[in-house]
Design a protein around this nucleic acid. Structure first.
Length: 943
RNA sequence: GCCCCCGUAGCCCAAUCGGUAGAGGCAGGCUCCUUAAAAGAGUCACAGUACGGGUUCGAAUCCCGUCGGGGGCACCA
């Protein structure tokens, strides 16, 4: 071998200097990103304040769900939504709207803290490093963010206002009569004046502690000693929303135990009705609305009081109140059940049954939620007491059983085995009577009948009868009767619980609360905000064996003695106080960030009202009279359906009630993007192998010669199937990557990642580039040729279609239309693209692949960035066709086609169809039974 | 167990009011270009809409049932 010239050298030499390769794309992209940044191209002006500028009335606020800056870095699935919002934002910006699009970071949270614990670094350091990595990754994608508006929840300048909002919530109460939150001072005034009566003694006679305790029962943020979800494995308590159905933590999958602890709560239940009702005013996916409705769980029913003859120590009669959604079945109540934790169990249990009841309660208390969940066999114990059914005076036994939960309704039920399967099962197990009070259909073969039908066996001697009434009528009648008798009333019950708001963590917002020597919580004055996180030696909460239910929470801040004890002058001279050592949950910062995006640097207020109204206020002329305001388009995954999205709505409503914001919903339109999923492969041992190196042969998969098994699901490091946006930008360029992600399918559909398909997007950009630029010289190939009618028709059809597609988030079809147009240019204008076609094509491409579009736009001689338009407009005259081709169906099958003038009347079209040779042949001289002419579409001849 | 969504070509996906099943991409065949290969250009084929019924002049689209996939809720009275 004389010379060793690798083949690839020839290949490299053969690549024309100005071909749109990944290298050239990379160069163009970096150049334009720098240009945009220097020019502030994506700065959106505010009406007033530090970011003041000339504002068009037409605005658009587009927002991505707040990212958490994970240390793991991004994979190709993460930017899907970010690119989606960017395309939308760019499209509307080109059409002249003032577009607010930015991205900040939800940077408090467990992973940073855990990482800090492992490495000994301060969580702020690791978090800020992660943010830089994240920013580097997303910058490479060319997202048109207003970087002046980047915020981070961990900045004291941000969490000062999170604390401020907490104080607003703490200092307000829900006035059910007015149906809104009001300042607590107004309640205090009502108590003081006697306008509202106090429970035990007059306000004037109450001590300060008593008064504060009373107000605490009204505050929307309050301290409560109540059973909470204690997770020893995480060393913190969790909200109901953070616990899975099988009683484990959503994060980390550790067991969760019920423990009674003194914790901060948010009175979100005060807003149950509004949170459900206002869903109707939102442009949100039905699925998410359904999940929220389900979680809030409103059910209409009645409370009914049953008198119980005390069988135990206290012989007097007590009332047991139950909640039921089926008061119409009251005649079928053959026994009652109390939850094991119900306080009346002690009162009514007979001495004979006392031991059995106590044993049962002990047994139940040892069961975890998971045990109770898994074992659906009905268990329980008779209390020895009997209740009287108010409708017919029948004497029914009272049981204790764990299928009744203390946490829902009143913790007691009337059992109607004829109409409830759970009660049926219990009645069968304990041999209790069953009475049907709704007539099932004749062919009904089930056990309990929960359907609708006429009431039966539902009358009493002295007149009350439901017999023959349908379920709805019977409910109405019995509720009226109960109210008249004073034995019950119609009511509404919710599943939603108040929101547990304390966490025993270091890396979260400190509460702006101190305690005096009486242990009463006192709000820190606004002027002292922010309460900054102190430095500590150890960031970790004390965690425990995950199964150690008896462990005690120990927040890291409680060990920062110098910080915890503080001397303040809160009006009556300097005194010592103790700080709250819990921190706020991760959700706090994301409850209001859209408001801060609007006014990130405002120092006097959390947001200037004028700017808030401009960007987020209701716009009834555009969106209808019930428009709640909020972000115009909010894109994110469906996983936040009941956590973040419910909490954020709650905070917004409180702020609205108190007059701090102009709209009562934070997100007018919500869109859930799908997920990018991927194949993963495991070998015979079940170990994951690098997906990239797997080969497919005849429908089987091989890694290093061995057959491997294919799975489909998430992308993840441990699954060895991660593809990063950095890789894709390196290999193809950001514009190609963006275009590919957007062409994979509709935004809301999940789909598998396929690296091999990315080349299709690259080829398209190369062809388009080549139509405008000479690959060898880099000279413009655009001509002044007047394109023919056909090309103009296609151009304007494309413009009209692409407009519609962009506006409706159908980026995949927008991309396809551009490819179609470009293919036409390639085929019909081999000498170069006519400028009349080239310019609109470049502009229409810009939202999807902005860098190459800017580059071509400037090569076309334009000196201004195309970021603010113009976006081409379709000329109507090219959209109407002169002639129309009608397919002619005979009995629904296409048999022929005729071409007629577009202005032809239905009769003319019909005549043309019947005159067609093929059709005439099939008619064979006879008359058709019927001829259907669909104008512009087709003709169907029925024989 | 209850509720919701989805099944179109080998793969990802179009089809806007019930009106010609195919826009686009990947993979594949063929032709051109090339010493050759790759890249590129051109061109072609492939399904009748998961399955079974129904409504209709006409169904991927509406209705009922079955199968398959995904998701939510779950002893909530």
């Amino acid at each position: 071998m004389e010379r060793d010239i690798p083949m690839s050298t020839d290949a490299a030499d053969a690549t024309p200097a100005y071909r749109y390769t990944a290298e050239l794309a990379g160069e163009i992209e970096r150049r334009w990103q720098q240009h945009w940044e220097e020019q502030g191209t994506f700065h959106a002006p505010n009406p007033v304040g530090p970011l003041k500028g000339d504002v068009p009335a037409d605005k658009l606020f587009v927002q991505d769900m707040f990212p958490y800056p994970s240390g793991a870095g991004l994979h190709v699935g993460h930017p899907l939504g970010f690119i989606g919002t960017d395309v939308f934002a760019r499209y509307h910006r080109m059409n002249g709207r003032n577009v607010l699009h930015t991205m900040g970071f939800d940077a408090f949270g467990l992973p940073a803290e855990q990482y800090a614990v492992q490495t000994g670094q301060h969580p702020r350091k690791t978090t800020e490093d992660n943010i830089q990595t994240y920013l580097r990754q997303i910058r490479r994608l060319g997202l048109g963010h207003d970087e002046r508006r980047r915020i981070s929840t961990i900045d004291p300048g941000y969490y000062k206002w999170t604390q401020w909002i907490f104080l607003q919530i703490f200092n307000s109460w829900y006035d059910t009569a007015a149906g809104k939150a009001r300042p607590i001072a107004e309640l205090e005034a009502e108590f003081a004046s006697g306008e509202r009566s106090t429970p035990d003694k007059p306000w004037a006679e109450m001590t300060g502690v008593e008064r504060q305790r009373l107000l605490g029962e009204y505050r929307l943020a309050y301290l409560s000693e109540a059973p909470v979800n204690w997770c020893p494995g995480l060393g913190t308590v969790l909200a109901n929303e953070e616990v899975t159905a099988d009683g484990r933590s959503e994060r980390g999958n550790f067991p969760v135990f019920r423990r009674s602890l003194r914790q901060w709560m948010m009175r979100i239940t005060a807003y149950s009705d509004r949170l459900i009702d206002d869903l109707e005013r939102l442009d949100w996916p039905e699925k998410v609305k359904a999940m929220q409705r389900n979680w809030i769980g409103r059910s209409h029913g009645a409370r009914v009081r049953f008198a119980v003859e005390g069988a135990g120590a206290s012989p007097e009669t007590v009332d047991i109140e139950v909640f039921t959604t089926r008061p119409d079945t009251l005649f079928g109540a053959t026994y009652m059940v109390l939850a094991p934790e119900h306080p009346l169990v002690d009162v009514i249990t007979s001495t004979e049954q006392a031991e059995a009841v106590a044993a049962y309660r002990r047994e139940v208390s040892r069961k975890t939620d998971l045990d109770r969940q898994e074992n659906k066999e009905k268990t329980g114990v008779f209390t020895g007491a009997y209740a009287t059914n108010p409708v017919n005076g029948s004497r029914i036994p009272v049981y204790v059983a764990d299928y009744v939960l203390m946490g829902y309704g009143t913790g007691a039920i009337m059992a109607v085995p004829g109409q409830d399967q759970r009660d049926w099962d219990f009645a069968k197990a304990f041999d209790l009577p069953i009475i049907r009070t709704v007539q099932p259909p004749a062919d009904f073969e089930g056990e309990a009948f929960t359907g609708v039908g006429p009431a039966v066996n539902s009358s009493q001697k002295n007149g009350l009868s439901l017999d023959g009434l349908d379920v709805a009528e019977a409910k109405k009648k019995i509720i009226a009767w109960l109210e008249e008798q004073g034995r019950g009333e119609g009511t509404v019950q919710f599943k939603l619980r108040d929101w547990l708001f304390s966490r025993q963590r270091y890396w979260g917002e400190p509460f702006p609360i101190v305690y005096d020597e009486d242990g009463a919580p006192i709000a820190v004055p606004e002027s002292m905000l922010p309460i900054e996180l102190p430095d500590v030696d150890d960031y970790s909460p004390r965690t425990f064996e995950p199964d150690d239910a008896n462990s005690e929470p120990s927040p890291p801040l409680s060990r920062a003695d110098d910080w915890v004890t503080v001397e303040l002058d809160l009006g009556d001279g300097p005194r010592k106080y103790r700080r709250e050592t819990n921190t706020m949950p991760n959700w706090a910062g994301s409850c209001w960030y859209q408001l801060r995006y609007v006014d990130p640097t405002e120092s006097e207020r959390f947001v200037n009202p004028e700017n808030e109204r401009y960007w987020l206020g209701p716009r009834t002329t555009e969106h209808g009279p019930s428009d709640p305001g909020g972000v115009d388009l909010y894109i994110g995954g469906v996983e936040h359906a009941v956590l973040h999205l419910l909490y954020a709505r709650f905070w917004q409503k409180v702020l609205f009630d108190l007059g701090h914001v102009s709209g009562d919903e934070p997100y007018r339109r919500l869109f859930n993007q799908g997920y990018i999923e991927a194949y993963a492969f495991r070998d015979a041992r079940g170990v994951y192998v690098p997906a990239e190196e797997v080969e497919e042969r005849d429908g089987k998969y091989f890694f290093a010669g061995e057959e491997v098994r294919r799975e489909y699901g998430k992308m993840g490091k441990s699954l060895k199937n991660v593809v990063t946006p950095d890789d894709m930008c390196e290999k193809y360029g950001a514009d190609t990557f963006r275009l590919y992600e957007m062409s994979m399918g509709p935004m809301d559909v999940s789909r598998p990642w396929a690296t091999k398909d990315v080349v299709g997007a690259q080829r398209f950009l190369q062809r388009l580039w080549r139509n405008l630029v000479d690959e060898t010289t880099g000279e413009l190939r655009v001509t002044d040729e007047d394109p023919d009618e056909e090309a103009l028709r296609l151009l304007h059809k494309t413009i009209a279609g692409v407009h519609d597609d962009y506006a409706n988030l159908r980026y995949n079809t927008a991309g396809a239309k551009l490819i179609e147009l470009n293919n036409h240019v390639t085929k019909h204008f081999p000498g170069g693209a006519p400028r009349v076609l080239a310019e609109p094509m470049v502009l229409m491409l810009a939202p999807l692949s902005p860098h190459v579009a800017e580059e071509l736009w400037s090569k076309l001689g334009r000196t201004e960035s195309l970021a603010h338009g113009p976006f081409p407009k379709a000329d109507e005259k090219y959209l109407v066709e002169d002639t129309v081709q009608y397919p002619i169906q005979v009995n629904g099958k296409v048999k022929a086609r005729v071409v007629v003038s577009a202005s032809a009347s239905a009769d003319e079209v019909k005549a043309a169809a019947l005159a067609d040779e093929k059709v005439a042949e099939l008619l064979n001289g006879g008359e058709p039974r019927k001829v259907i002419v669909v104008p512009g579409r087709l003709v169907n001849v029925v024989l």
